[in-house]
């Protein structure tokens, strides 16, 4: 409404322009444009040089040189992703692990968020802070903590053997079980918080009205509470699903050689094999898989932001 308020004030509008231009330029240079660079390099071939790929486009080539170099681009890296089962199995397994753990996290987070939202009002801020607090402590350290718990001589096995539930240590670390535990643990706050935010806003008189109209509490939950908390469910699911799909630290530290996840594959391709073009191709395909959920997530966040206005 006040869009043209300062239209006459050129100093104001120049300032206004700067406010948009600075962060926009930053994100263009350091976020958007790099993706096209990755795309370009994914069509290159590996080289024993620095940078370890070719062709390297430079200004001094001239047009003829540029044309010559353009012909060196190849789709071989992408063919490799299809041909070698290690790669496409990584994608399938990443998405599978991400989907399963998203459902698991939702199942664990919902009762916690629900309980928090129904807690006495004066406790709620403290409870929210307690959920956020672990999030402030290092992600790496929290994953590391689980290594000590889940290892063969770890606390969990000691405890289970102490109570005589098992005679031999269970192998948990370096299996997908450990990966699931680590993921659920690390991403839990990201699900609890959006769920809590919607559940806390829920008007309790709606439930009283439902009961008054003859709806038993359990049914009222499914008919009233759950549908109204869906925005939180959706936000939470995207907030955990997308980063889990590309997760590296958890499968690398808690998983074993049998744990295939694409973040790990990309990391090894880049750091251990130094195959930058192939790593780029892996990243491009991962991005293509995630582009739909990311766009949905953005739209949802934008809508929420507009609604709050």
């Amino acid at each position: 409404m006040a869009a043209n308020m300062t239209s006459a004030d050129t100093r104001g509008s120049r300032l206004r322009w700067l406010v948009i231009a600075i962060p926009l330029a930053w994100m263009l240079i350091f976020f958007l444009i790099p993706f096209f660079n990755v795309l370009k390099i994914s069509f290159s071939t590996r080289a024993r040089a620095m940078p370890p790929y070719k062709p390297v486009l430079t200004m001094v080539d001239g047009l003829a040189g540029l044309f010559d170099k353009l012909q060196q681009f190849t789709a071989a890296n992408y063919l490799m992703l299809v041909a070698d089962s290690k790669y496409w199995l990584s994608y399938v397994s990443s998405v599978q692990i991400a989907l399963c753990s998203t459902v698991l996290i939702l199942l664990v987070a919902y009762p916690i968020a629900y309980g928090m939202a129904r807690a006495p009002r004066q406790w709620r801020t403290t409870l929210v802070m307690l959920v956020i607090l672990p999030f402030w402590t290092s992600f790496l350290i929290r994953v590391y903590a689980w290594m000590g718990i889940l290892s063969d001589e770890g606390l969990l096995n000691q405890l289970l053997m102490h109570f005589g539930l098992i005679d031999q240590p269970l192998r948990i670390l370096t299996t997908n079980w450990a990966v699931y535990i680590g993921i659920v643990y690390s991403y839990l706050p990201f699900m609890i918080l959006p769920l809590y935010a919607t559940l806390e806003k829920l008007d309790e008189t709606l439930l009283e009205a439902a009961e008054d109209l003859g709806c038993p509490p359990m049914k009222a939950f499914w008919k009233i509470t759950f549908p109204l908390s869906l925005p939180g469910v959706v936000a939470g699911c995207f907030l955990v699903f997308i980063p889990i799909t590309g997760e590296f630290v958890i499968p690398d530290l808690l998983g074993g050689s049998g744990t295939l996840m694409i973040g790990k594959t990309l990391w090894y391709e880049f750091f251990n094999n130094r195959n930058w073009p192939l790593a780029s191709a892996v990243a491009v395909v991962l991005l293509l898989i995630l582009v739909v959920p990311i766009v949905i997530f953005q739209n949802q966040q934008q809508k929420q932001a507009e609604k709050a206005r």
């Binding site: 350091f30 790099p34 990755v38 590309g246």
Partner: peptide, 14 residues
């Protein structure tokens, strides 16, 4: 939500 490996790789290549 962007996986760190993608952000990291693209910034490095830049």
């Amino acid at each position: 939500v962007m996986p760190d490996v993608i952000t990291g790789l693209s910034l490095l290549l830049l």
